[in-house]
Design a protein around this nucleic acid. Structure first.
Lengths: 150, 150
DNA sequence: GCTTGCCTTCGTGTAACACGAAGGATTTAA
DNA sequence: TTAAATCCTTCGTGTTACACGAAGGCAAGC
């Protein structure tokens, strides 16, 4: 049995957030001690991880609440729950793709900065470089050429 | 030259957000027409993409503002900008890893739901299944066994 | 008996917009 | 020529998911 503080350490959530979640009913398995202290068993910790996963992948609290309530209604709601996860999983996958693109962009940007720092000023007469900078959103281009031209 | 509406269509941002960004000075290349209409050339569009990338990968607006201001100060700030991108890129990569895990979790969950829907009730006497359900945060476990045991 | 740790409620603050309304200017189409 | 569409501005409120602090109280350990 874990206290809020321990649960926070285990899940990486803050104590504030955990109290918030339990108060909203997102962790139905959580118990209270005789002195009203929240007690998390392994299953409650798992629920916390589940809530964390759903939330961090972009599901609003209200939707998570809906999902949890469906869980509590038993197996009859399995089709509905299945549909929810299918839909949300799709969304999460799209976000993942975007995140990959963002990381790629940031890495390109870093690379170019490294080149500049190494003294290799990018060849702005080369259309390929221009394209690359366009891909990089223009700021390096802007700072290292446009301003200098003025 | 694009108007706010067009820029919104191109970048996938809302007009509200674009006005918000330009007002905050995150798109230094944006111009105004003689009648005060925001005009976005290709470079401004690129900046919008850049801001979108940074924001969506978790950088707060204020930090983006700082970065943009550094860009405007010219090549002398390249080391600092490079460091910022390095640091933020690292963070974005961590988030990407988390996102992957979340998608994996959701896919596992979906798979189990599919199995249940197909009539294959998970074997709860098998420790491996138990482990798998733990990985899935317990809600299927909870709904399909614990409640029934009562 | 004092510190520590948990609880509660209350209240305010934050980010990054979303949304609508009012009021004004301009461009375009019928 | 007039009506509709599109742009602008400022103002103000609402939203989400907490963060943070304070006050006040109970309970356990040293």
């Amino acid at each position: 049995m874990h206290t809020v503080k321990e649960a926070a350490q285990i899940t990486g959530l803050t104590e504030h957030a955990i109290r918030f979640y339990t108060d909203k009913g997102l962790v139905p398995t959580v118990q209270r001690s005789e002195h009203n202290v929240r007690l998390f068993d392994e299953q409650s910790i798992n629920w916390l991880f589940g809530v964390r996963c759903l939330k961090q992948s972009g599901m609003p609290i209200e939707a998570i609440k809906t999902y949890v309530d469906l869980c509590l209604q038993g197996d009859s709601t399995v089709p509905e729950r299945s549909a929810m996860m299918k839909k949300h999983g799709e969304e999460a996958r799209l976000q993942l793709e975007e995140a990959k693109r963002h990381v790629a962009h940031l890495e390109e940007k870093m690379l170019l900065y490294e080149e500049i720092l190494a003294g290799k000023t990018p060849d702005t007469t080369n259309p390929a470089t221009w394209e690359r900078m366009r891909y990089m959103h223009g700021d390096v281009f802007y700072a290292s050429t446009v301003l200098q031209e003025k």
